[in-house]
Amino acid sequence: MERLSRHGESQVTTLVKPFHISLPALSRHIRVLESARLVRRRRHGRLHLIQAQTAAVREAQKWIETYIAGWETSFDVLDQLLKKEQRKVQKQ
């Protein structure tokens, strides 16, 4: 995704070069990203050109941030519950 964002639309064969994975393995990965609408595929004859969908990537990043914030909110509540219980124990 980083390479796609940096270099724009790219061929699958170009994308595979820096990675130690096979072309079929990368193709599978691209299909997952495609179904997730994080990349778009354009066919030009036999060439398959892949382009990052930056809006979707931003949305995914936003989702992750919100997800992490969810843990924080829950942990804050747990923290308060534990403090309350600790105070109760100390009074006894």
Binding site: V32, L33, S35, A36, R37, L38, A56, E59, A60, W63, I64
Partner: peptide
């Protein structure tokens, strides 16, 4: 990665 992709999908 994988999980958020499925979310976006």
């Amino acid at each position: 990665d994988e999980f958020s992709c499925q979310m976006v999908s």
